[in-house]
Design a protein around this nucleic acid. Sequence first.
DNA 1: CTTTGCCTTAACAATTTGATAATACCAAAC
DNA 2: GTTTGGTATTATCAAATTGTTAAGGCAAAG
Lengths: 230, 230
Amino acid sequence: MHDMNTVNAVKKILIADDEPDILEIIQYNLQSEGYEVVTAKNGNEAIDLAKKFNPDLIILDIMMPGKNGIEVCNILRLQPAFNDTLIIFLSAINDEGTEVKGLETGADDYLTKPVSPKILVSKVNALFRRVNKEDNGVLQIGDLKIDREKYIINYQGNDIILARKEFELLALLAGKPGKVFLRNEILNQVWGTEVIVGDRTIDVHIRKIRQKLNLDCITTVKGVGYKFDL
Amino acid sequence: MHDMNTVNAVKKILIADDEPDILEIIQYNLQSEGYEVVTAKNGNEAIDLAKKFNPDLIILDIMMPGKNGIEVCNILRLQPAFNDTLIIFLSAINDEGTEVKGLETGADDYLTKPVSPKILVSKVNALFRRVNKEDNGVLQIGDLKIDREKYIINYQGNDIILARKEFELLALLAGKPGKVFLRNEILNQVWGTEVIVGDRTIDVHIRKIRQKLNLDCITTVKGVGYKFDL
DNA sequence: CTTTGCCTTAACAATTTGATAATACCAAAC
DNA sequence: GTTTGGTATTATCAAATTGTTAAGGCAAAG
């Protein structure tokens, strides 16, 4: 079953490189580790795919036809949707200036070719491990406990049963208390980018959560979205 | 709330290496960037200092007398207190196996000597940038806090609720204090180029902001536009 | 095959927000 | 002192957004 983009979902990786061989080697190695991988052959393709696929990590070759990696990174970083997306540069240029510039553009790492697939995989794992620190185990906010692994909500000692979408929606909002999640963000995270559902669907689930929790911890921000607060 | 001590504080870095020259170069470069740096000459010293100093990042040479870097990393990673501490390995060993093992031990990055100080600094910055999600769209001017992510305005400790257009308008003006925004600029940024609204609309929203904020931080520049100033 | 529970949508009510017009206001120019 | 050219304010109405309820489709379980 595909859990789409949900809380404990398989991480999605986009690789962009103009050399098919490299693309294939990296793709193979990352897929072997259990990641979901898509590839792009140039900068423009990378940007399109990033929007559609909504990856957790993007590996960008610096020298590509069309838009180069740094340009792609700049364009993506301007959009809030890709704020949390990890970016690793990959390049044959073993040049200090380029590397520094790449990192300052907002990348999370910089590797020089030829790159060992094992090292790449290790770095990818390390990055996800670091970023995922907060997603582990139970999430506790006040009297509310959310166990992402066991799919259990507990409020003031009482277990509350939520349906899957309800659970994922609550887990998302509670993951960053106070942050206002745009309706689009919610759709992407809970429903995935491919499914298309109406706006009322979110409302209804929000309502059910409020009802079952019997506690108004979810605040509506009109024209913007919803946020969780105790 | 559990992160209070680390938010916005100067980041603390511990460097452990048995070569005094390297220690000094790295220390100098990181201090120039504004980090607080302490150094250790071997593994045991590193562990002691880590406990006392409680650094945000530890840079560990792999080959050191006494305990080597990987051992130090293992010991520290076993303690929950160092769960969130970033660790970078530094090593002369350019060996794939060692690097992979290092990363799997729980390190966040692995650099091989000789290492360029600039690249090291960039990597350190990149790591902190990623981990530090606190410096997201929160914009603070005097007593006024504007949290773009939480959609919250806070003035002198009191939360103020603004409607969407009001919020966006204030966020725009406050984004560049002192700059005078032409009415056209405001229309383009807040209302977009496609919607066409009358000039009075801006006035009305400005008024609502002034009213709710109870503070005249928005100055009218007659015949030109508006600017934000405290 | 029937039941059950979840997800989605439709329809309508309730609420909030945004835009406009009319009016009041102000400072500088006459 | 009045006019003039602009800006601020108020009130009002239209439009957009969300809340709520009810009901149908669908898949898994019985």
